[in-house]
Design a protein around this nucleic acid. Structure first.
Lengths: 337, 337
DNA sequence: CTGTTAGCGCGTTCAA
DNA sequence: TTGAACGCGCTAACAG
C-alpha cells in the first residue's frame, strides 16, 4: 500500500506537506505542490480513509434507512437521495428495516460503527424514538422522512397526510359513497394515524357517522388484506362498504387483487382509492391514487441532512411538507361521469 | 466517545481483553466475558470501525454498482444483495451508474477510497473493463452480475440469455409469427448482444430469414421506443412485424405504451413478449415475460463475493447461470388458443 | 486466559 | 511555507 510517507520520500518533502497537498491547503508553494502531485499520480496513491476518518471523525458516508427498497415509493426516495448525495460528494449506505424496530436497531449500531456522517430515515414506528436518541447521543445528525416520531424535534420531510386524505375521501363522497372503509397500516406509524384521523374528520364534516367495522388495521409491508376484505364483505348489506380507502401503495394493490379474486367489480360494486402509487414506472393503472413526490423526499431530505452536517442549517428544525397529486382513475369513477 | 479503554477501566481488565470480547475470541473466561459485556452495554459502547479498519484493512463494506435502482430488476437485485450482506455482517454502498461509463468510473474512485472490501457490479458496458482492471490493481475482488465483459475472467451470475430468448422467440413462431421484430438495448452491452444473437439463430433454425429492418437498437434505460416503433409501422405491409421481442423490462413496458397510443391491438395486430418483467410487485399484467431471478442475482452475487473476500472461494472463477421463468400471457397468445 | 508493547496511516499542534 | 512529534481507537504479536 502506498502511503503519504512513500510520496514524501520520493518527492523529498515531509509527510505533512503531502498531507497538505492532498487536502488542498492554501499554504503550499506552487512548485512543491506540482512536485508532490506528480509523485502521487506516478505511484497511484489513494488516501486511506480509515486513517483519515480516525482523526477527522468524518467519513463522507450517509446512511439511508428505509423500510424496504422493494417498495416503489422508497425506491424513488433512494434514487433521489443517491443523486443528491453523489452530487455533494457523499456515498450512501442502504438499510432496509422491514418495518421492524429490532432490525432498525441492528443497522443503527452498524452505521454508527461505520461512522456515518448522518442518517436519512423513515423510521419503522414510534419505538424508533430510542434509535433517534442513540443517534443524538453519538452526535450524528438525522433527517426524518415520510414518518414523524412523537417528541422528536428535527428536520423533516413529510407528506401532507391530512389534506391528501381529505381530498381522497371527499372525492369518494362526491361520487355518492357514504359507506367508506379504510384499510390502514399499523397505528404505531405516524402516517397511519394521521391518515386515519383525517379519514374520520372528513367523514364527520360531511355528516357521515364513523362505523368502526369499516376501519381495518393491516400492514404497510406484507399487507395481507385478505382477512380485512373478507370481514368487510361479510358485513350485512346495510353496512357493507361501497368504497375502500387504502392507505398505502401495497395495500391498494393488494386490495385490487383480492377484490378481483372475489369477482367484485371495481368501481361498480366497490370503488378503491389509494394513498401512494403501486408503480412509479408505469402509468397505465386503473387505480385512483395520490401520487407522492417520492424522489423529492430523498433529494430534499439529503439536502437538509448535508446542510445540517456541514453547519449550514439554521438551528431551528425545518419541516418540509410535500403535497401529493391525485390522479382520478376508473377505480373510483362512476361510469355516468 | 466511549472507547475500549473506558470499558477496560470500568471492568478492571486490559483494553486487549475488551477487544477480545468484542471480536468474540474463544480464549476468554466466561466470567470476564460477562463482566466486560455488562460494562459495554452499560456504557452503550459501539466499536469504531475506522480504527479497526486501519489495522485489519477490512471495512466490512461492500459496494453494489447497478445501472439504476429505479429499474425493478435492480431493485430486486439490491434487496437480495442487501439481505445476504446484512446476514454476513456487511453493509452495502449503493451506486447508480445510469448505464454511463464515466459515472461508473467516478463511483469507482469513491468506493476504492472508502475502502470497499468488494464490489458487486452490473457493468455499464464493455468499456467498464477499465474499471474492472482498476479494481484488480487495488486488490478489490468483484463479482459481475447480469452482464459479462469480454476478456474479464471472474465470478459471475448471469441470465440464460440464449435459452430464454430462444424459448420466447419459439413461442412466437409457434403462435404463427414469421415477421418478428426485436427492440434491443445498445450492443455494447453483453446481454443485448447475446439476446440478439439468440434471436437471429432461432429464426434461422426455423427457416425464417432475418430482416435487418426488424432489428432496432434502443436503450435499456430511458428506452424511448417511439421512433423504433414508428419505423416498424412504416414498413410495407409485407414486412411489417406481427410480433415484437422487447429485450428488457423498460423496453417491453414502453412498447406496450406506444402501441396503445397508436391504437394497435395487442396481440391481434402485434404480439409482444418481453425479457424481464416491468414490475416485480404486481402480477396482473397482460404482458408475456421471461421473469428473471432478480433477487438471486443479488443474493448469490454477494455470497460469491464474500466467499472470495474471505478466501473461501476456489481459485477458479465461478459462473452461475440463473434460468428465467416464462409467463405466457395475453400479449402473445392467439385468441383461438 | 490475560496483559504489554507497538504501530496501522493520517492530520492536529506547535515550532522553525 | 514547511517539518517533528504526537495521538486518534484499535488489534497483532508476543510475553506471562
Amino acid at each position: 500500500m502506498v502511503t503519504i510517507y512513500d510520496i514524501a520520500k520520493k518527492a523529498n518533502v515531509s509527510a505533512m506537506t503531502v498531507s497538505r497537498v492532498i487536502n488542498k491547503s492554501e499554504k503550499i508553494s506552487e512548485i512543491t505542490r506540482k512536485k508532490v502531485e506528480a509523485v502521487i499520480k506516478e505511484l497511484n496513491y489513494i488516501p486511506n480513509n480509515s486513517a483519515r476518518n480516525l482523526i477527522t471523525k468524518k467519513t463522507k458516508i450517509l446512511s439511508l434507512m428505509i423500510t424496504d427498497i422493494g417498495n416503489p415509493f422508497f425506491t424513488s426516495v433512494a434514487r433521489g437521495a443517491e443523486d443528491k448525495a453523489m452530487q455533494m460528494g457523499y456515498q450512501l449506505l442502504l438499510c432496509n428495516s422491514d418495518e421492524n424496530f429490532e432490525k432498525e436497531s441492528k443497522y443503527m449500531d452498524m452505521l454508527i460503527s461505520t461512522g456515518s456522517d448522518g442518517v436519512l430515515i423513515a423510521p419503522a414506528n414510534d419505538n424508533s424514538k430510542k434509535n433517534m436518541k442513540k443517534l443524538t447521543k453519538h452526535g450524528i445528525p438525522f433527517v426524518l422522512i415520510d414518518r414523524r416520531i412523537p417528541d422528536i424535534d428535527c428536520d423533516q420531510v413529510l407528506s401532507d397526510n391530512e389534506a391528501t386524505t381529505r381530498r381522497l375521501i371527499e372525492h369518494l363522497i362526491k361520487q355518492g359513497h357514504r359507506k367508506i372503509a379504510i384499510i390502514n397500516g399499523p397505528l404505531v406509524v405516524s402516517t397511519a394515524r394521521e391518515r386515519q384521523q383525517s379519514y374520520i374528520d372528513t367523514l364527520k364534516i360531511h355528516g357521515i357517522s364513523v362505523n368502526n367495522d369499516l376501519i381495518k388495521e393491516s400492514h404497510f409491508r406484507d399487507s395481507d388484506v385478505t382477512n380485512s376484505i373478507q370481514e368487510l364483505l361479510n358485513l350485512p348489506e346495510s353496512e357493507r362498504p361501497t368504497a375502500i380507502f387504502a392507505t398505502n401503495n401495497f395495500i391498494g394493490m393488494n386490495t385490487m387483487k383480492i377484490l378481483y379474486r372475489h369477482n367484485i367489480k371495481v368501481p361498480e360494486e366497490i370503488a378503491v382509492v389509494s394513498y401512494d402509487v403501486p408503480n412509479y414506472t408505469e402509468n397505465e393503472s386503473i387505480l385512483t391514487v395520490a401520487e407522492q413526490q417520492a424522489y423529492n423526499f430523498g433529494y430534499i431530505g439529503i439536502q437538509l441532512l448535508i446542510e445540517r452536517i456541514e453547519g449550514a442549517a439554521p438551528e431551528k428544525a425545518r419541516k418540509i411538507v410535500l403535497p401529493s397529486e391525485i390522479h382520478l382513475r376508473a377505480s373510483s369513477l362512476n361510469q355516468r361521469d
